[in-house]
Design a protein around this nucleic acid. Structure first.
Length: 644
RNA sequence: GCCGUUGUAGCUCAGUGGUAGAGCACUUCCUUGGUAAGGAAGAGGUCGUGAGUUCGAUUCUCAUCAACGGCUCCA
């Protein structure tokens, strides 16, 4: 007998060799049906794997993350079995569970798979589900495993085996399909009730574009059709928040074939958003002691050779134009220009910290496949600034920048983000990163200290730094789940030297400043794209392109409506009258769809009593009040940039 | 850049080897209506672009451009 400890602390005895599934059955049949996998002594095991010794046991279902991922991983195996029946010579790479489903990478040889074939694959998978084959785990020696895959001529699995040794190699089989797999898996295929293969994509082997491209099929599966339907519905809902859709509907931006890919045209409504963001940035930066500068969109090649950008990023820059025997590049970053402003006049330590700010226009030749609405474009307006400071000043400056980020995020109500401390990879010194090992160590420690001492939660990642220093990136997710860097705060110990930037220190000696690159509001493009999704198009009043729509109930009340509108406009409120000869219901509907925060309904009663009937977008009738009271309230809301 | 998909009116989408249709939006007229769509008429497209097959292409083939879903990349 063995002792099994349950999560509530209770201990029960079972026959040695009993499975988690059998234990579940002994509790209730209903529970047994829900068990997907088990946590045994802290490790995730097949529910069908015999327990040989005393252990703690947690039975995991669809509601546990490990339950879900096992469910999806097993579906990937099921898909592989189906693929093998259509493509007998297929070779598989890996088939993991991901955030929202699973994929399997495979080499189909000369064959191509098209999306039409996904349906037949799904059909085949559903047939296999009906067979309800058990997933069978088998421990195997490395030698046997190598023989097995060598016979199949499967170089991919042989490659995986290289990094494995005896004792940690297992095969899993279901039906006619056997795969090298660490597991665990579901008890049997019959549990997978609803399957949707979503997309087919190319994926480079081991994620390296120099390697062969494998065929990747994505899918998702659920324990019931109802859950699959709900999932698909949720995806539909997410699409409604997509900034590309909202951007078009609300007249924010447009793209045009003739202008070029990734080159957004800002329409009047979008430009209002830009103006408001710039006002916020100017106000905030002024208070924080920044000075504004303006620099050209192009510069000579030598500037980017000095900065060191060209050897690292030439592929991401538009090709140069040649004029008067000189190569000129469209600028992809503002820093070199700002450095030149720094060095234009001699600097003393008394001039530091010097904070130069610019909403700089940059052009980056992003690969065509990378472009994505406003989130990834080729012309961008960066909320850029460079802070030149001494080593002693660095901590306070970096900290102040960090605080500025958090202040902004509070204004916008941005809560779902991750601060990512992006570090270098010492193996890539001299290649991806400037070759200054000691400086890397020093500044990375400094930046980490700021985060720790200010109690800012963060994650650390290797090999994500800028070429000139470590950085803190703020990661956000678009409504369809893509991850983006919204804002960035970077240390630069390299460019100061490269540009020979100097200040005279208190001992009358020349010294090179440290530089902080920061862009808390990121770029207009990405930030507004993000805000569109964040607010689902329902901007707070201070940002809304139209803040108030005045809606006369009939043409008879147009004079008073125009009068009210003129009062609002005088108070610098973005107000418009809907003077169409439409019914009030229609006017309200159209205004609601355009997500205008306030509607003022004006009829006979309001004219007689010199009032307005206030309607709030999404909330309905808020009652009647005087124009003066309404003005006072909305001005307060705008001035304080209230979120609601 | 690579793999896959798509491209028809401003938007959402039907459709066909024989020179195109709906709803909404738009224009005009009627209507002057109290909190999410009043009625009628009208205008609007060389079916992404280029070539090929064909008596004839928006439809079939190829190329190209762009967008979308991924991969890679992201200063």
């Amino acid at each position: 007998m063995i002792n099994i400890t349950f999560p509530d602390g209770s201990v029960r005895q079972f026959e040695k060799g009993i499975t988690s599934l059998a234990i579940a059955k002994s509790i209730s049949e209903g529970l047994a049906k829900k068990i997907l996998v088990a946590e045994v002594g802290g490790k995730i095991w097949d529910a069908t794997r015999p327990l040989q010794e005393d252990a703690s046991l947690k039975l995991l279902t669809w509601n546990d993350a490990e339950g879900k991922s096992t469910f999806w991983h097993s579906t990937a195996h099921l898909m592989a079995e189906a693929v093998e029946s259509f493509f007998p010579n297929v070779k598989f790479w890996v088939g993991p569970a991901v955030d929202n489903g699973f994929y399997y990478d495979m080499d189909l040889g000369d064959r191509k798979m098209t999306e039409d074939e996904l349906q037949s694959l799904e059909k085949k998978m559903n047939e296999l589900v009906k067979l309800n084959s058990s997933f069978i785990r088998k421990e195997i020696s490395k030698e046997q495993a190598i023989i097995f895959f060598a016979e199949k001529g499967d170089e991919y699995k042989l490659d995986l085996l290289q990094n494995l040794s005896d004792g940690e190699i297992t095969f899993y089989s279901q039906g006619n399909f056997t795969d090298l797999c660490r597991g665990p898996h579901l008890p049997s295929t019959g549990i997978i009730k609803a399957i949707k293969l979503t997309t087919i994509a190319g994926a480079y082997w081991k994620g390296d574009e120099k390697n062969k491209q494998l065929t990747r099929v994505y899918g998702v599966s659920f324990p019931s059709q109802k859950e699959l339907d709900e999932h698909l519905l949720m995806l539909e809902e997410a699409k409604k928040r997509d900034h590309r859709k909202l951007g078009k509907e609300l007249g924010i931006f447009t793209m045009d074939d003739e202008v070029g890919p990734g080159l957004a045209l800002w329409m009047p409504n979008g430009t209002i958003l830009i103006d408001e963001l710039e006002n916020l940035a100017k106000q905030t930066e002024k208070e924080a002691g920044y000075k504004r500068v303006v620099t050209p969109h192009i510069a000579k090649e030598s500037l980017y050779l000095t900065s060191g950008h060209l050897p690292y990023y030439q592929d991401s820059m538009y090709p140069p134009m040649e004029l008067e025997g000189q190569k000129y590049y469209l600028k992809a970053m503002n820093c070199p220009h700002h450095h030149k402003i720094f060095s234009a006049e001699p600097k003393s330590y008394k001039d530091l910290p010097l904070r130069l700010a610019e909403y700089g226009t940059c052009y980056r030749y992003e690969q065509s496949g990378e472009l994505f609405g406003l989130m990834r474009v080729r012309c961008l307006h960066m909320n850029d600034a460079h802070i030149y400071c001494t080593k002693d000043q660095f901590y306070d400056e970096f900290r102040a920048v960090n605080e500025m980020y958090l202040k902004y995020f509070k204004i916008f109500g941005i809560e779902k983000f991750v601060m990512r401390l992006s570090l270098h990879d010492s193996a890539k010194l001299g290649k991806k990163y400037v070759n200054e090992a000691a400086l890397w160590q020093e500044t990375e420690t400094l930046v980490r200290d700021v985060l720790i001492k200010t109690n800012t939660p963060f994650v650390e990642v290797q090999d994500e730094a800028a070429f000139y220093g470590p950085k803190i990136d703020v990661q956000i997710w678009s409504t369809i789940g893509k991850e983006f860097t919204l804002a960035t705060n970077q240390v630069d110990f390299a460019q100061g030297l490269r540009f020979n930037l100097q200040f005279t220190n208190s001992e009358n000696k020349p010294e090179t400043p440290l530089i902080i690159h920061r862009a808390p509001l990121g770029t207009h493009e990405r930030f507004i794209g993000f805000l569109l999704e964040h607010y689902a198009g329902k901007f707070p009043t201070w940002l809304a392109p139209v803040q108030v729509k005045v809606l006369p109930i009939s043409d008879k009340f147009l004079d008073y409506s125009n009068y009210v509108t003129s009062l609002l406009k005088k108070a610098d409120i973005r107000a418009e009258v809907d003077d169409r000869s439409e019914k009030i219901g229609k006017k309200i509907r159209d205004t609601e769809i355009m997500k205008v925060p306030y509607m003022l309904v004006i009829g006979e009663k309001e004219v007689n009593e010199k009032q307005v009937a206030v309607r709030r977008q999404g909330k309905g009738d808020m009652g009647v009040k005087s124009v003066e009271d309404f003005l006072k309230e909305i001005l307060d809301e705008i001035k304080n940039r209230k979120t609601d």
